[in-house]
């Protein structure tokens, strides 16, 4: 028996190696194939049929991130405030909202895409549009923002709220001047991670923004594309070099956002709590 378990140990170590190799291979593949094909013109140049560029995708991605964040961040933070500060995170309503956010978080992104298609493209008659895609993405990232903000608010020590109330501070002022600044580090981390999800997402966008890769969108109601969507488009339209180069851009962007999330969060924590914490 002992021998069996010792052997298992080596199987585990082998699996660790396989995991690392597999994941690193994905990154290495993207970098090796993509970097050579990167050029200034590919990323920022004007789109021509024989020389496609990422300019429309860059604009589209930026607009999607901005709109999705503008919608989801205030609603997410406000609803977390309600759950934590007004109901003590207890009771039936909190439970129902909890189930709703958890269910929303579990819905596959293609179903969000289908929903966005039904409501914005068909029911509202907008056709494919950046705005419709962005609103759909906002709903998709809402649960994450609600949940992480809830956690950040719960981690603020009760003594701070008591201290503010004891000075005759109103509830709303206590929330905005004491509780939110104290929780800011965690909340900002959550927001940046959510932005990372918007940047990575493509299934939702296939059904909502139209994958128009060759035109910089003129308005928010225009159809468009994003970096992630461009990868799919190029890969399926016989342009593997462009696809790999786009993947490099997207990968770097997403990794940066992920690293930035933790880094900025800690920076804010340090500036609110000093070196004490």
């Amino acid at each position: 028996m002992r021998k069996l378990y010792s052997a298992l140990k080596y199987v585990c170590i082998a699996c660790l190696a396989i995991s690392l190799i597999a994941l690193v291979a994905v990154v290495a593949y993207v970098l090796i194939n993509g970097i050579g094909n990167l050029s200034f013109n590919l990323v920022f140049g004007e789109y021509k049929p024989d020389a496609p560029t990422l300019l429309p995708a860059l604009v589209g991605t930026l607009e999607l991130v901005a709109i999705a964040a503008i919608i989801a961040v205030p609603i997410g933070i406000a609803s977390a405030i309600f759950l934590v500060e007004y109901t003590n995170n207890k009771g039936k309503f909190v439970k129902i909202v909890g189930i709703a956010t958890e269910t929303l978080a579990g819905i596959p992104s293609i179903v969000y895409g289908l929903f966005g298609y039904l409501i914005f493209v068909v029911a509202f008659g907008w056709g494919y549009s950046l705005l419709g895609g962005a609103i759909t993405l906002a709903i998709m990232i809402l649960p994450t923002i609600v949940r992480s903000t809830q956690e950040s608010l719960l981690s603020v020590q009760g003594g701070l709220r008591e201290g503010a109330y004891a000075l005759g501070t109103s509830k709303v002022r206590t929330i905005f001047k004491i509780v939110l600044p104290s929780a800011a580090g965690g909340i900002v981390t959550a927001i940046i991670l959510a932005i990372g999800r918007v940047v990575s997402e493509s299934a939702v966008l296939i059904l909502t923004i139209g994958m128009v890769v060759n035109k910089v969108p003129e308005t928010l109601m225009a159809p468009g594309t994003s970096l992630a969507l461009d990868i799919y488009y190029f890969a399926n339209h016989g342009r593997p070099d462009e696809a790999a180069a786009t993947a490099v851009v997207l990968l770097i962007l997403v990794m940066l956002l992920n690293l930035l999330a933790g880094w900025i969060g800690n920076l804010i924590k340090k500036s609110t709590y000093g070196d004490a914490k």
């Binding site: 003594g159 701070l160 008591e162 201290g163 000075l167 005759g168 001047k177 004491i178 104290s182 609110t272």
Partner: peptide, 25 residues
């Protein structure tokens, strides 16, 4: 509460500068 101040068992300064703590009220 502005007229009846309270000091708690565990010191609970707000996570901000000394000046801002005092100026809060």
């Amino acid at each position: 509460r502005k007229n009846v101040g309270m000091v708690f068992q565990k010191p609970n300064p707000f996570p901000m500068s000394i000046y801002d703590n005092i100026a809060f009220a």
